[in-house]
Design a protein around this nucleic acid. Structure first.
Length: 940
RNA sequence: GGGCACUUAGCUCAGCGGUAGAGCACUACCUUGACAUGGUAGGGGUCAGAGGUUCGAUCCCUCUAGUGCCCA
């Protein structure tokens, strides 16, 4: 016998063990190989190896799991490919922090090889906790195939891709501005930069009475170094006729960058500066003394500030472009930790950028060149992991020509080879892909795939999959150009190391370079494996919109280029999970809801069902524990329904055929079951998770538990053995269908109940997760639907009247059905016990007219009376009837108005007109009967 | 500034060219042999506002107001 309440914490680990024991989630199960089953593949968007499960993961993986379990039950050969990525910066950071805490020497002290070894040790010991958390969520991945982006095979894929793209000219080295993270001392991609709003508070103007107060500014900048616009006077090298001042005013939010200025730009049509442009005037850069040109460029906006902007090509993305157009010098004044370097005047060298900022403002004031400072609101780029201000910095980096690779990726979506669901996300995708910038793939880290590029003594680069190949190439090259003699080359070749000639590039590749290969590298590529053959392209990628650029874009580019086929047919973009107030969950706000905590309190099934039921397309999820609690209650409800079935010996029979039943109730419920399973199936096929979940919920609670189980109690307690046997078998059958249709959402409780449901008198040993998805047809029965609908309506009406008439819940009352036709009489006879039980009646009788002092009920064409003279408050009954008549009349008026409109009758769909006529007739009947009841009441 | 959404019951949200729905919350009653993590009944809505299309608009179109997100 089942326990009285459902205890998820007890059940979940055990069920998990059973799935593992049966290897239920393994792709290519013996019965599903080859033509026996269609493959269905999802690759997990690889979580970060340092990560732990947050609500976003919980949603993302719940949806993937729902799809996988659904398709697995539909007989497909499902591969849900799990794994993690190596998360370059994040992982290196975690290990370095750990070393610091243990007061061990830092990574530079122990050297690259030892450090990388340490990271591997960390990974083996503590990496991938998220994998176990995913298991707790119930994720049915093929865990035997778990992959890691730094695995041997995946690393081989990375090398091959790099070398091939290099040889195709799609990877190249370039000196450009990158987003430099001075904390981690590495380049990061645009996507790893977050814009943070800054709004300063300090204000000063040289026209004001007071002197500039450097200490006050310091104080403001201590809170936030950004948020101010500084206006400086740059003196003209020579006075120019036709221009009334001897200086030009420029504005900047980053004063320290002035040390790297190599020009001032004004708009070519800005009258104010025409004389300066005509005279090819220059300014002398204050504090530095460099003479720099004033150039005409449309980049400067005449409407903004003075219309003149300082140009610092080496420290600003826009200025970089302006500088290129005018051939301005690129002067890098910062080192890798954002301190002023030797290109700055001596007084500033070695200063941190923000110290220098304050010093420069003070020095400009001292020189009488500070015009004003005003608070401004602007966005400042920060590293998403380091949380420090990012510097645009001029370095040599490796780039992928993303614009070229993006062409095919765009086309594939235009052609519909890959489809976005919901469709509107393709706009975001197109927008991004059509404006894609060169992708900087080198990172100045030690943890990751080291770039397979070697440099000769003259800086010549040799890109190859391994050192030997690079060396061979280099030797040929240097012998050919005469740098090396053949003898010397042979000697180097024999040494077994390239050290004498080549030096390997120290940088590693962006983590996403390897993750972009995930849909095929995990299947064994570059080897031509059977898995690759069978499971690529994958069916769907499930992800949040914020990750379109990370996952979708890169996987599309790489997949199309190397596999010549899209990596996935569908991209399902789901919502973001927010807190109950609609705010993004974040650690700093302290509003994170820990999925594992939720699982502990309510069970994984409740969390999963909540996320599924709320996953409406195109809308974010505002999650509250109350909602989870509600679905936990649903699990309990299901549990108790199963318990009821068990208590009543509802066992599945060999010969049970849902299409051949005698009892109306059973005919009705199998039809409802068919409708529900069809709704769930349709919902899941269309990625409408909320519709699927709600359809199942509605059916299980609102129909099966609320009505069917209640309605059959008289049969189960009665002495019609045949009816009892059929009903028991039917309950068992419906419950089986319920467990199946709920399984994708609530795998644990359904699997547990499945095991408890005895089948043909034997304890069941097969697993639900490998059972067959309901495929029902031709179980609808209109007569049964009408009959049970009538019973349900009658019971509801009686209950309603009882409640409104304040008839005590415990009191049993008589019911007199008046004016019943043959059908109604038969129905009432057939379901006498049921109606009596659920409406708490002591008798049902028939009479031509209603007795005096009775409450009246109208259900369709049936009129019934509750004759309780003295018990019933006649005044209340009069009010109730009048109200019901009023409501019906209101509806009738609407129908009449429609039908009175000739345009409606002429132009509306015939079905709509017919429906309106039927409704009108129905309402008229109801009003007639209710009015008759009211008259009788008034007459008595 | 460019783009994408959203505005429906007290709250959170479904819905969608033809009787406005759910969960939670609320009110009243009920420990009846599966379930109080429950049952029964009930109250509560000019579907943001203004136009337009249509026989008919919460739904389609336009504008307005407000909110959120992404990208500059």
């Amino acid at each position: 016998m089942l326990e009285k309440t459902y205890q998820p914490a007890e059940i979940e680990p055990r069920i998990h063990g059973e799935w593992e024991k049966a290897e239920a989630f393994k792709a290519g199960r013996p019965d599903r190989q080859g033509d026996a089953a269609e493959p269905f593949t999802i690759v997990i968007p690889p979580p970060n190896v340092t990560g732990s499960l947050h609500m976003g993961h919980a949603l993302n993986n719940t949806l993937q799991d729902v799809l996988c379990r659904f398709e697995r039950m539909r007989g497909k050969d499902v591969l849900w490919q799990p794994g993690t990525d190596h998360a370059g910066i994040a992982t290196q950071m975690v290990v370095e922090r750990q070393m610091m805490e243990r007061q061990e020497p830092d990574r530079r002290a122990i050297g690259r090889d030892t450090f990388v070894e340490k990271v591997w040790t960390w990974k083996e010991e503590s990496g991938g906790v998220i994998i176990n958390q995913l298991k707790r969520l119930g994720a049915s991945c093929d865990w035997s195939r778990e992959r890691f982006t730094m695995d041997e095979g995946l690393s081989r894929a990375v090398l091959k891709v790099f070398v091939e793209l290099y040889r195709a000219g799609l990877i190249y080295k370039d000196k450009r501005l990158v987003n430099w993270d001075p904390k981690f001392q590495t380049a990061i991609s645009d996507l790893e930069v977050v814009q943070v709003d800054s709004q300063g508070s300090f204000k000063w103007d040289r026209d004001s009475e007071e002197a500039f107060d450097a200490a006050a500014l310091d104080k403001a900048l201590a809170r936030d170094p950004s948020g101010h616009m500084y206006h400086f006077r740059y003196p003209l090298t020579q006075k120019v006729d036709g221009y009334d001042k001897d200086y030009i005013v420029v504005a900047t939010t980053r004063p320290e960058t002035m040390l790297g200025d190599s020009g001032v730009a004004v708009h070519p049509e800005d009258e104010r500066y025409a004389a300066l442009l005509a005279a090819k005037a220059t300014v002398t850069l204050p504090l530095v003394g460099r003479e720099i040109p004033i150039v005409a460029d449309e980049y400067s906006d005449p409407e903004k500030g003075t219309g003149a902007v300082k140009i610092t090509p080496a420290h600003d993305f826009n200025d970089f472009e302006v500088g290129k157009r005018h051939n301005l010098e690129q002067i890098n004044i910062l080192d890798e930790i954002a301190q002023l370097n030797e290109n700055a005047p001596e007084a500033y060298r070695g200063l941190d950028r923000f110290i220098a900022r304050k010093r420069i403002v003070a020095d400009m004031d001292a020189a009488g060149l500070l015009e004003k400072i005003e608070p401004t609101s602007h966005t400042v780029p920060h590293g998403d992991r380091s949380n420090v201000v990012i510097e645009p910095w001029l370095t040599d980096q490796w780039y992928v020509n993303a614009a070229e690779l993006a062409k095919d990726a765009v086309k594939a979506v235009e052609d519909g080879r890959t489809r976005f669901v919901p469709k509107n996300w393709e706009k975001t995708y197109f927008e991004w892909m059509r404006n894609i910038q060169p992708w900087c793939i080198s990172r100045q880290l030690w943890w990751g795939h080291q770039i397979p590029a070697w440099y000769g003594p003259d800086g010549q680069v040799f890109v190859a999959t391994d050192e030997g190949e690079a060396l061979a190439e280099a030797l040929t090259h240097y012998v050919q150009n005469g740098t090396l003699t053949t003898e010397r080359a042979d000697e180097i070749a024999r040494a077994g190391t390239a050290d004498a000639l080549l030096k390997r590039d120290e940088d590693v590749l962006d983590t996403w370079f390897s993750s972009g290969l995930w849909p095929f590298s995990t299947l064994g590529w570059p080897d031509e494996t059977p898995e690759l053959q069978r499971y690529y392209p994958t069916n769907v990628l499930v992800t949040g919109f914020d990750i379109i650029f990370f996952w979708v874009a890169r996987m599309m580019m790489m997949g199309l280029h190397f596999m010549k086929e899209v990596p996935f047919h569908d991209v399902y973009i789901h919502a973001l999970v927010r807190d109950e107030k609609g705010q993004k969950m974040s650690k700093s706000k302290g509003n994170v809801m820990d999925p594992l905590g939720v699982i502990d309190s309510f069970g994984a099934d409740a969390l999963r069902f909540t996320l599924s039921a709320m996953a409406a397309q195109g809308r974010d999820i505002k999650l509250s524990t109350q909602r989870v609690e509600g679905y936990r209650n649903f699990a309990t409800k299901l549990w108790n329904a199963a318990r009821f079935a068990e208590m009543n010996e509802c066992v599945r029979k060999f010969d049970f055929d849902p299409a051949a039943l005698d009892e109306t109730l059973n005919k009705w419920i199998v039809g409802e079951t068919e409708r529900a399973s069809a709704a769930v199936t349709t919902g899941l096929e269309a990625y409408k998770f909320n519709e699927a979940a709600t359809a199942a919920y509605e059916f299980v609670w609102g129909i099966f538990c609320d009505w069917y189980l209640e309605l059959i109690k008289p049969i189960l307690n009665g002495d019609d053995e045949e009816a009892k046997a059929e009903t028991r078998a039917c309950v068992a059958w419906v419950l089986d269908q319920i467990l199946k249709m709920l399984h994708p959402f609530m795998p644990f409780i359904t699997e547990e109940l499945w095991a408890h449901m005895v089948e043909h008198g034997e304890k069941r040993t097969s697993l639900l997760t490998l059972s067959q998805w309901p495929k029902l047809s031709e179980l609808q029965n209109a007569e049964a639907d009408a009959e049970i609908g009538w019973v349900v309506a009658l019971i509801s009406e009686i209950r309603s009247v009882r409640s409104e008439m304040n008839i005590p819940a415990g009191a049993k009352i008589p019911l007199v059905i008046t004016g019943a036709d043959k059908a109604a009489r038969e129905r009432a006879d057939r379901h006498e016990d049921t109606i009596g039980r659920l409406a708490r009646l002591d008798s049902i009788s028939f009479d031509a007219t209603a007795p005096k002092g009775a409450a009246m009920i109208v259900v369709g064409e049936t009129t019934a009376a509750i004759p309780l003279e003295g018990v019933i408050d006649m005044e209340a009954e009069r009010r109730r009837l009048a109200k019901e008549i009023g409501e019906a009349q209101g509806n009738l008026d609407k129908m009449d108005a429609k039908l009175a409109n000739p345009n409606f009758v002429a132009k509306a769909k015939p079905e709509a007109v017919e429906e309106t006529r039927e409704r009108k007739a129905e309402l008229e009947g109801i009003i007639k009967r209710l009015t008759a009841a009211l008259r009788r009441l008034e007459a008595s």
